[in-house]
Computed example of a mutant assay.
Amino acid sequence: MKAIVLEHFGSIDNLQFKELPVPQPQAGEILVKVGFAAVNPYDQKVIEVYGKEVGVQLPVIPGSELSGIVEATGEGVTGFQPGDAVCGNLGTFGGCYAEYAVVKATDIVKKPETVSFEAAAAIPVAALTASKAILEEGHLKAGEKILIHGASGAIGTMAVQLAKAAGAYVIATGSGTNEQRVKDLGADVFIDYTTQDFTGLAGEIDLVLDTVGGKTQEDSFSVLKQGGRLISLVQPPSKDKAAQHQVSAKMIFGGPNASRLEQILQQLAGGILKVTIEKVYVLSDAKAALQAIKTGHRTGKLLLNP
């Protein structure tokens, strides 16, 4: 099979396009013929910044989000059979930038017929991370006010939609070029961070979702109401500031959740959630896709098509 392989950390340029044997599923695993693999910021960061720190072993095929068709199942796998259309995000890094990928049966779910393979590959990581952040960890309730930073990004756009579906009042920050797109997804108020200061436009916020960090996170404490919550996806919040403002604040990480992903796919199939695909690259152009991720300001998900 054709695959993208990383043998040395430190640079996207270290990726190689190779021919490898098709892997075989072990007990509890499934071999998937990859339809599409998503390219995520985390992939680039593992390759260039902290691969060793998170325990990634080299050589590795990057990518942890995919859709495709079940090719074979390992011993003890039930509920899946060859020919099933599936999607998911993996609990461990790597394997998806290839024509075939071995995945844990617990990490994937069947794809609804009305959901495209492109959308199915693009939604798991962003939607599951957003859902965990604002619903599970953030305990967002109907009628509450949520401030979503970085609302035009993959996780941010999912958070806007999930928050609106939960009955919240949604205030979103982002670049002004994305205002209409974010409002179309359900944001009640859009704040252009390039020309406006959110601290003077938002207040008495119940929940802040921070996908930006730095000064944005620091300033967010001032707009939270007493007893409010701040959830960050990018850096641990200051315990001192949380205590000073009498709020709770923590950093969380995403991960697979099959039952929740099934619900998300049904919301996608029913039109409650929407996902935008910005561009599909051929597998051999993985470096270009990762370079586009690195430059930022994406308007949708980037995918690889093996």
Rank of each mutant, 00 (worst) to 15 (best):
E137V: 03
A172E: 02
L303F: 04
A85P: 01
V22G: 10
K241C: 06
G28Q: 08
H149G: 08
G28T: 05
Q266N: 09
M158T: 10
K164W: 05
G174L: 11
Q226C: 01
K132H: 13
R260S: 03
L66C: 05
I148N: 14
D197R: 01
L233K: 04
G51S: 09
V282Y: 01
D210P: 02
I155H: 03
G153E: 11
F190S: 15
A27R: 15
V223K: 07
A72G: 07
I264K: 14
D84M: 02
K215L: 00
A126T: 10
Q57D: 05
A154L: 06
L58I: 04
K287Q: 14
K274V: 08
T299S: 14
K279R: 15
T92W: 04
Q246P: 00
G74D: 06
Q16I: 01
L209M: 11
V160E: 10
K45V: 12
Q244D: 08
V86K: 13
A98M: 07
L268W: 02
V54I: 13
L135C: 05
A101H: 01
P62E: 04
P25S: 05
A98G: 06
P23N: 11
G88M: 08
K141E: 07
L230G: 06
T295Y: 01
P237K: 08
V223W: 02
A243C: 02
E262Y: 08
G88Q: 07
A72F: 03
G143A: 13
K110P: 00
S175D: 12
S220A: 09
L140I: 09
L162K: 08
S175G: 07
S284P: 01
T216G: 10
V115L: 11
A119W: 03
G270W: 09
S222E: 10
Y50V: 07
A72E: 12
E262P: 03
A151K: 01
T73W: 07
T295R: 12
